[in-house]
Simulated assay, not measured.
Amino acid sequence: MPPKLQPSKNVKITDVAQLAGVSVTTVSMVLNGKGRISPATAERVQQAIKQLDYVPNSAAANLRSQQSNLVGLILRDITDPFYTEVTAGVSEVLEQQGYLLFLTQCGHSPERLQQSIQSLSRQGVAGIIFNPVRGAAAKTLEILLGSQLPVVCAARSYYRDDVDFIGPDNTHAAQQATTYLIEQGHRHIA
């Protein structure tokens, strides 16, 4: 039977600073790759981080900087293969930019859409990508759009022109499909 992993002591940035013999600010600058830090000092800090198995607390850093690395994605049904692909693509792009995906689903319920928006807002997300729900209360969506959060509509267009939209180009896809069918000799295309 493999040994049980013991939870490690919660190592703080102050512990790293003390072991490296530097200030907390210096450790922070090394972690963020900012500031003028000598290679020798940076190496001492990196050694202390490794020795203590320090893992930076993203939530604390976000509170200090008042910025978030979380982006909320609200979908109708995460088990739908189309939305699975959307989720994978969004997650991949966000991770390349240093963000993490916070996923929620609302089904076809305007009430659950509102709950999802409120939950994501409370979590302090940096922005929200959402899939409109038919019949959603305009007030709910207006609150979202009126917030300071960047908002992007995904997969289905929204009724307002001032909302960024990412989705399939159905017109171009239909043209390509029709051209292909004509090239194959089909003449009665519905």
Rank of each mutant, 00 (worst) to 15 (best):
146 G>D: 13
125 V>N: 01
86 V>L: 09
172 H>P: 01
42 A>D: 09
38 S>R: 06
40 A>N: 07
97 Q>I: 01
51 Q>A: 14
122 R>P: 00
33 G>A: 04
147 S>A: 08
98 G>Q: 07
154 A>G: 02
121 S>C: 06
94 L>I: 05
155 A>E: 14
72 G>V: 03
117 I>K: 10
14 T>L: 08
138 A>T: 11
156 R>V: 11
186 H>S: 12
88 A>C: 02
175 Q>P: 07
51 Q>G: 00
105 Q>M: 11
147 S>P: 11
169 D>C: 08
137 A>V: 07
105 Q>Y: 11
149 L>C: 12
147 S>G: 10
128 I>M: 04
39 P>G: 12
64 R>F: 00
52 L>D: 02
152 V>K: 05
53 D>A: 10
149 L>K: 11
14 T>Y: 10
159 Y>W: 06
87 T>Y: 10
68 S>N: 07
112 R>S: 14
66 Q>D: 11
124 G>K: 04
123 Q>I: 00
51 Q>K: 13
159 Y>V: 12
169 D>A: 11
153 C>M: 07
105 Q>R: 10
83 Y>F: 15
13 I>G: 00
169 D>L: 09
190 A>L: 15
112 R>H: 14
188 H>W: 07
16 V>F: 03
49 I>R: 01
8 S>Y: 10
122 R>A: 12
76 R>E: 11
186 H>W: 11
78 I>E: 06
57 N>I: 00
83 Y>W: 15
155 A>M: 13
104 T>K: 07
29 M>C: 02
127 G>Y: 13
81 P>V: 05
71 V>A: 05
112 R>N: 15
186 H>C: 15
5 L>I: 14
172 H>N: 15
121 S>R: 08
102 F>I: 01
86 V>T: 12
111 E>N: 10
11 V>M: 13
83 Y>C: 11
139 K>V: 12
161 D>V: 00
46 Q>G: 01
65 S>L: 04
17 A>Q: 03
124 G>I: 02
164 D>C: 09
97 Q>G: 09
17 A>W: 07
103 L>N: 05
147 S>K: 08
59 A>Q: 12
69 N>L: 07
6 Q>C: 09
142 E>H: 08
123 Q>H: 11
162 D>I: 05
25 T>D: 01
173 A>T: 15
49 I>V: 12
61 A>M: 02
3 P>L: 14
69 N>E: 04
60 A>Y: 03
100 L>N: 07
84 T>K: 06
152 V>M: 06
43 E>D: 10
32 N>L: 06
29 M>N: 04
72 G>Q: 10
184 Q>S: 12
98 G>P: 06
52 L>I: 11
168 P>I: 06
143 I>M: 08
157 S>Q: 14
109 S>V: 10
168 P>R: 08
